[in-house]
């Protein structure tokens, strides 16, 4: 075993985790400011320049709050559940390639923590594990609103996980690999379409899958208009109604980190990741992920919330058949070898 490479991977993972946490903190600031602009308000602008210290102030406030455990809660599960959600959230980012590799101090350093041959499956698996935190937290709270939120979340994640996974199958067929690094390399070729030289990004060859992935990803991260588990106006706060202080913020952290991870994965899978004009690099990945994050906030500021039965109907009656059709079409195209796909 190459211990040096392992240690470098660990270090890279450590840095990545901290960057994610920082990004998450500023994602809350960004969302609040942006939603405020959508709504003709100003948003947090008092703490530091442009309100940039607001996330830190929020964190200090949340840490100093009392950690309340309700009397009829299942104590152990209640205390552990938010941690579960939080720990599993950033794991998906480990397989995101931020580039090929660079040479630093005479050493080859890969710009990804790990390149496993089932990276896409790993991302899906970690994503669905995160829902355990929600289910257990909702169940253990001993509150009926939380219970309903947890039930909704279970049904929602199971349905949309399926769509999320199936929407990616087209890409797997085209690249013949589940590794994100391989998928990224496949997108760096050029695609010739009707005399035009386009980058071989999968948004161009798999547009339907992209739309399906986008919808499913929003549902998977419990964001508006699919924020039923935490539907504020129906279930008060859903599964985290009873949580307070930093345990509450663990759920919050998990949700925002999930958003960032999903955005990074979507940018890598469909928009060519680090690939871009002028010079390839991590800035392109950041810009593309930012588009998705903006999209998340935009949705939240604009759309009403789905009802539970409509949500399930959308997943099983619309998205799932479309995903299957997409797989079939991609398979046929691949079989007959049309174009440069």
């Amino acid at each position: 075993m190459d211990w040096e490479a392992l240690i470098i991977s660990y270090l890279f993972g450590f840095v990545l985790l901290n960057v994610l946490l920082l990004l998450m903190a500023y994602m809350t600031w960004f969302e609040r400011r942006l939603v405020a602009f959508f709504q003709d308000r100003i948003g947090p602008n008092r703490t530091g320049p442009f309100g940039l210290l607001q996330p830190i102030a929020d964190a200090v406030k949340l840490i100093s709050k009392e950690d309340i455990v309700p009397a009829n809660a299942d104590r152990l599960i209640f205390l552990v559940a938010p941690l579960l959600s939080f720990v599993l959230a950033p794991l998906g980012a480990l397989v995101v390639p931020f580039g090929e590799s660079i040479t630093l101090f005479g050493r080859q350093i890969n710009l990804y923590v790990i390149d496993i041959n089932v990276a896409a499956l790993y991302f899906l698996a970690v994503g669905s594990m995160g829902v355990y935190g929600i289910i257990l937290g909702g169940y253990a709270s001993g509150n009926r609103y939380s219970l309903l939120g947890a039930l909704r979340s279970t049904a929602q994640v199971i349905s949309y996980e399926l769509v999320l996974g199936l929407s990616l199958v087209g890409i797997f067929i085209l690249t013949g690999s589940l590794s994100l690094v391989e998928i990224l390399r496949a997108q760096q070729r050029t695609l010739v379409l009707g005399g035009l030289e386009l980058p071989n990004w999968f948004i161009l060859s798999q547009p339907l899958a992209f739309v399906l992935f986008l919808i499913a990803a929003v549902a998977e991260t419990n964001r508006a208009p699919f924020d039923l588990p935490e539907a504020e106006t129906e279930l008060i706060a859903g599964y985290f109604t009873e949580y307070s202080g930093f345990r509450f913020s663990f759920y919050f952290l998990a949700e925002y980190i999930n958003m960032i991870v999903v955005s990074l994965i979507a940018a890598t899978l469909f928009l060519g990741g680090i690939d871009g004009p002028f010079a390839d690099g991590i800035w392109w990945l950041a810009a593309k992920a930012f588009i998705f994050l903006f999209f998340y906030v935009w949705l939240r500021a604009t759309l009403p919330r789905f009802r539970y039965d409509q949500l399930m109907g959308l997943a099983w009656k619309v998205l799932l058949p479309l995903a299957l059709i997409n797989i079939g079409m991609t398979g046929l195209v691949r079989l007959w070898g049309i174009g440069a796909l």
Partner: peptide, 9 residues
């Protein structure tokens, strides 16, 4: 019903 912005408008 979940449409946040309308109330502000």
């Amino acid at each position: 019903i979940g449409a946040l912005s309308v109330s502000l408008y």
